[in-house]
């Protein structure tokens, strides 16, 4: 799993699974959740920036038309 390799590179060897309140915390799940945090936030910002650019362009190209409307 490339994500695991990346985390090992960044944070060193991973600890083994451990027991928590609701059950065993699997290292894979923990890495998956951290990866989700990164991908999710970056993904949302990319979508928001694209929508921002769309609004900017829409307003730029429709502002002249407004006078006619």
């Amino acid at each position: 799993m490339t994500v695991q390799v990346l985390f090992q590179f960044l944070f060193g060897p991973m600890a083994a699974d451990f027991q928590s309140l609701m059950g065993v915390v699997k290292t894979d799940d923990l890495i998956g959740s951290l990866w989700l945090l990164l991908q999710g936030m970056v993904g949302i910002f990319i979508v928001m920036v694209v929508i921002f650019l769309v609004i900017f362009l829409l307003r730029k190209f429709t502002s002249g038309k407004k006078k006619k409307e």
Partner: peptide, 24 residues
């Protein structure tokens, strides 16, 4: 719009915490 993105941080942070608590 940027705040509509930033304020979703709790969603992903909570996923990490829930995993740490042992949820699948």
């Amino acid at each position: 719009l940027l705040f509509g993105g930033a304020a979703q941080f709790g969603i992903f942070m909570t996923v990490v915490l829930a995993v740490l608590l042992g949820f699948p």
